Simulated assay, not measured.
Amino acid sequence: MSQANQQRPALAALWMTGAIVAFTLMAIAGRAVSFELDTFEIMTYRSAVGVVVVAILATVFGKWGEVKRDKLPMHMGRNIFHFAGQNLWFYAITVIPLAQVFALEFTSPLWVMLLAALFLGERLTRLKLFVAVVGFIGILLVVRPWVAPPSAGMIIAAAAALCFASTAIFTKRLTQSQTITCIMFYLTIMQLVFGLVCSLADGDMALPTGGNVAWIVLIGFAGLVAHFCLTSALSVAPASVVMPLDFVRLPVIALIGVMLYAEPLDAMVLLGAALIFGANYLNIAGAARLERRNSVTS
């Protein structure tokens, strides 16, 4: 990690403010259109907006030469998981409180840690096992199966986090040889095709209306902006700085849920999410210490 990265936390905070706003707007817009469109239709129109934006940016900045075809099967695998995860996420935000969805979404890095050990051969240390246990306790506090069986919405939100973790594993492999432009191009194109196939499967696809077209455009832009801001934040500061800023999403979305949807402000959900965050932070801090140790000895 460069010295420059470690000295730009203010810029990282600015990028993360943009990411938090974008993620929040995407959740609000997703709820707004869910009364007229199903998740497949939302994903279709979101991807269509994404295709237009990526095409314009690739043309303006001369990036078309970066779009390669040598990793198409890996792009396909990544986008199948991302499409599934995003559909599950859009459904979850309509059936359970937004704070619960975001809290369970924070489990994604824990799944990445476990999946990396299984599929990338990364070592599962005692610290990582401890992190997994702490994170699991946090999940239990969010879901509270001793009070009532987990609802379908909770299970779906957890499944979305697992799909996002699988997406991250594919992304980690792809970024070794593919640019962001290439990854984003196949993301939008493939998910547009997936969305069209799923939306048309029953022969009845709802079209955008004057009442929801603005929400659809907002979803498309917010999704791209959120991930761009998050990636930019990680490029100017270490994950140990960015991640606490990302956690601000939870109290923000909890307050949005209270103000816009009269959702209860559940202290146990916030406590469970704090444990999940703490587990993720311990894992990142441990990795940072190991990296510094290796850089000193090399």
Rank of each mutant, 00 (worst) to 15 (best):
V236M: 11
G220A: 10
R249M: 15
P244N: 13
D246T: 04
A262K: 01
A159S: 10
S151K: 02
W215H: 13
P251D: 14
A214P: 01
C182N: 13
A254W: 04
M205H: 00
V213Q: 14
S235V: 05
L255T: 02
A226N: 10
V258Q: 15
L162W: 02
F228I: 03
I169Q: 09
P145L: 00
A165I: 06
L140E: 05
W146V: 03
L234F: 12
A148S: 13
S235I: 05
I155L: 15
T175D: 13
V236T: 03
A148Q: 07
M205Y: 03
P150L: 10
V143S: 06
I189V: 12
F164D: 00
P150K: 07
C182V: 00
V142N: 07
R144D: 15
V258G: 15
G203M: 11
T181I: 04
D204N: 12
T167K: 02
R249F: 15
M154A: 14
A214C: 04
V248T: 13
L141V: 05
P208T: 07
I156W: 05
G257K: 01
A158T: 05
L250Y: 07
T179M: 08
Y186T: 01
R173K: 10
Y186S: 02
V225Y: 13
C198A: 08
S232N: 10
Q178A: 07
A226P: 01
A267I: 05
L162N: 02
V193E: 14
I256F: 14
G203A: 09
I183S: 11
A161I: 00
A222L: 11
A157D: 08
C163V: 06
K172G: 13
P145G: 02
A148N: 10
C163Q: 03
T181K: 05
L234K: 09
S232H: 07
I156F: 09
M184A: 06
P150I: 08
M259N: 07
C229W: 00
I253Q: 02
L255S: 08
I155Q: 12
A239I: 01
G223C: 11
A157M: 03
L162Q: 04
A206I: 00
L230W: 14
M190Q: 09
P150V: 03
L245E: 07
F170N: 06
V252R: 03
Q178M: 06
G211K: 04
G210W: 06
A159L: 14
M243R: 06
F170G: 12
G210P: 01
P149V: 04
L265C: 13
T171H: 06
I216S: 09
L265R: 03
R173Y: 07
T175K: 12
I169M: 13
